[in-house]
Design a protein around this nucleic acid. Sequence first.
DNA 1: CGAGGATTGTAGGACCGTACGACAATCCGC
DNA 2: GCGGATTGTCGTACGGTCCTACAATCCTCG
Lengths: 412, 412
Amino acid sequence: MDQRRDEPGLRSESVRRANLSSIARELHNTGPLSRSELGARTGLTRSTIRALIGEFAAAGLVSEVGSTSLGTPGRPSVVVTPNGARPTALALEIAVDSIAGAVVGFGGEIRQLRRIERPRGELSLEQTVTDLAALARRLDGFHTRRGDVIGVGVAIVGVVRHSDGLVSLAPNLGWHDVALGQALRQVIGAFVPLSVANEADLGALAETRRGGARGCANVIFISGEVGVGGGLIVDGRPMAGAAGYGGEVGHMPINPEGATCHCGSTGCWETEIGEDALLVKAGRERGGGRSAMDALLRDARAGDATALAALDHIARWLGLGLAGLVNLLNPQRIVLGGRFGRLFPFVVDTIGRQLDRYALDAPRRLVTVVPAELGEDAGLLGAAELAFEPFLSDPATWLKPRSSTLPALASA
Amino acid sequence: MDQRRDEPGLRSESVRRANLSSIARELHNTGPLSRSELGARTGLTRSTIRALIGEFAAAGLVSEVGSTSLGTPGRPSVVVTPNGARPTALALEIAVDSIAGAVVGFGGEIRQLRRIERPRGELSLEQTVTDLAALARRLDGFHTRRGDVIGVGVAIVGVVRHSDGLVSLAPNLGWHDVALGQALRQVIGAFVPLSVANEADLGALAETRRGGARGCANVIFISGEVGVGGGLIVDGRPMAGAAGYGGEVGHMPINPEGATCHCGSTGCWETEIGEDALLVKAGRERGGGRSAMDALLRDARAGDATALAALDHIARWLGLGLAGLVNLLNPQRIVLGGRFGRLFPFVVDTIGRQLDRYALDAPRRLVTVVPAELGEDAGLLGAAELAFEPFLSDPATWLKPRSSTLPALASA
DNA sequence: CGAGGATTGTAGGACCGTACGACAATCCGC
DNA sequence: GCGGATTGTCGTACGGTCCTACAATCCTCG
C-alpha cells in the first residue's frame, strides 16, 4: 500500500543488499546468533548465509566462534557475533538537565557513555554545540577510532525537521528555529551522516528495539522531564510525519478549560500533566525542577496524602490522554519513560481505570502499560539506533567498495 | 527501521515479483502509461520493462496500443493500458443510510456501482448480509465474470478486526462483536480473499490514491454520517494499528466537560461534532438524520444566522481536534469527507484559525485542508483498493501459475 | 523532400545472486 | 561404537536483470 515513488526497481544486486540488511538487522537487534538460527530467521539457505556472513567477517564486522555444544543433536552451528567495535555509532543528546554522548557498537553494545549535568534554562546554540563537541571528543571510541564511526545521531528535547536538523521549537532551551544540524556538522565534522530527531521519538525507537516494547510493532512512548514528549511506532517504524514533526503529543488539546500553554495554545496535555502541573497540584512551587520532583516522589513513597492525591490527579489526565491515543493508534504497548517512568508505580492503576472508561473496548483490551526499561538513556540509545540506520538498511555499502568512491570503513 | 519478522529473505525470483508489483501499482494508480514512462518511474531498463509487460499482456491484464505521436522527437513509445475488465475487485459497503456494491477494474475504472438506500437503525446481521449478497449478484461484473474477480473488500461503519472481519462495534447498526467477515464469506463464497475494514480507513486510502490527497504520504481523513470516522495514512500506508482498530478519532476525548457518549466515555469528539451535536446546536431535533442535515445546510446557504452559528460552533471543535491530530501526525493533507465534506465551505475558515491557534507552528504550516473528491463513494472505492491489494503487491501469483495449485484468473 | 538527431523497441550474451544436491563434519542417544 | 540428526562446504543450475548493438520511428532543419 505504498504511496512512495522512490525508484522501486529491483535488480539482482538488490537482493544481496536486502539479504545483507536482514542479517545485519537480526544481529544488531538480537545479538549473537548461530548461522542456522540466522538461516531460520531470514529464510535463506545455508549456502547463502555462509556467503553473506563471509562478507561481514571479511570486513571484520562480525566474528565467527566455533561450536558450543548446546545439548542438541547434530553438528553444532557456528555462532556469529557482531564485532561491537567495528562499526560504531556516535550518539549525542541534548536533554533538559544534561547533555550526553555515547559510542554504541554494532549489536547494541554501549562502549562508552558520558553524561554531564547542566543547569536548566535558556542556553545558546553555540555553548551547547561546543559542550557537546567537547564531550564527544572525550569519548575515546570517537577520538581514537573515528574511522569506525558510521554515523552520528542526535536526540534533542524539541521539535525537529528531519531533513536538515532544524530545531523548530525547543521551549526548555529557549530555542526557536535554530539550525542545530548545520552547527553540529560544522563542529563535529561531516565525515559521516548526522541526523537529528526528537528525543521522545528516539526513545520510542530504543524502547521498541531493546526495551519495554521489544517485538511490538505499534507502540506509544510517553516521556519528558519538564514537558511531555511522545514517540509513536507505527507498523514497526517510527512515525515521523511529513517533515519529522510527528509525535508531539504534549500539545494535544485535552482540556478546553485548561491553562495557557507556553506554545500559545490552551489546555494542552502538557499543561495538565507537565512537571509544574504536578508540583502545583501537590502544593509546591512551580519551577522546582528535578529535585522538587524527587522530593515529591519520596514523600509519596512515605505515604504523604497530598503528594499521592496530586499523583492521582495527574494519572487521571494522563490516562485520559492515553485513552485517546489508544483509540487512535491501537497499540500493543504503552511505555512510560522519563518522569513518567519514575511516576509509574503511583499511576498505573489509575491509568488502567481511565483506559477502561475512556478507550474503546477492542483496542483497550490489546494494550498493556509498562515502564520504560532503558531509563534516562532511552533517547541517547535511540540516537545511536538512528545513526545505525543507514548501515542496517544497506550494509553492502560498507563492505566492498566496488566503486572506489563509495564509503568504506577506514582500516584504523 | 522495520521491526517485523516476516521471513525477509529475498531470492532472485523475488526481484521479478517486486518489479511486477511496481509496474502493476504504477498502472493501477496513474492509469495508462507508456513503456518508457514506466521505465523512468520504476528505474528498470527497456529490456526488463518489455519482458515484464509481456507477461501482463500474455495474461490479458494489459493491452499495448501503438504509438500516438505526441510531438516529441524519437520513436513513439507503446502505451500500456490496464485492461480494466480482466482483474476486477468486488467492493461492498455497509453505510449508515445505505448499502452499496461496485465492481472496479484494474486501473481504477468503476465498471458498475449500485447503492441502495436503507432506513437507519438497528439492523440484523442476517438481513444486511442477505441484502448485500443480493446487491452483489445484481452487479453483472460479478455475476457473469466471476472468474475475473480477484478479491472482495468490505467497508463498514464500525470498528473492525482485520484478521477475520469481526465487527467489534458498530453503534449505527446496533452491532457488537458481530462476525461479519465470516457471514459474508459464507454467503458470497470464499472463492477469493475477502477483507473487511473500517469505512473511514478505506475512505482515507481512496482519497489518498485517487482523491484530494493524491501523492501525499501522510494524510488525515475525517468522515462520518452520524458519528465521526477517521482514517490515517502514515508514511504512505493506512495506519491500522495492532489489530485494525486504529484511526478511531471519533472517540478521542476532547472535552472533559462534555456529554456522555454512546461508547460509554464522555466528551468524545463525536459528542461535540457529531450530527446530533450540530442539529441540537442549531435548535433542531436530534435524530433528524440526513434530511435534517440537508435542511440545515440549505438554511445556512440562505444565510440563516442560527444555522451559521451552529456550523461555526462545530467548526471550532472540529478545528480543535484537528489541531491535536496535526501535532500528533504532522500530515500534509487533511481531507474532509462525508458529512464534513458537505459542511466544508462553512467550516474551512474557522478550522484554519483553530489550527493557527492550537497547533504547533511547524506542522501547521505544512498542512492544507481540502474537501474530499470522491463524495459518498470514498469508502466503497477504498474497499476496492483493499481488495486489489494482494494482486498489486504480488501480481506474479496471478500471471503464470508455475505450480498448478496457485490461483490464476479463470479463462471465462 | 531528405538527412541527421533523438528516442524507443528488440535480441542475445554477460553478470549477479540464490537455490539445490551431494558429501563431510560433528553432536546426541542408546 | 553405531545410527540418526543437524549443519558446514562446495560446485552447478536456475532465475532475473543489465548491457550493448542494431533497427524502427518520429521530429527538426535546410
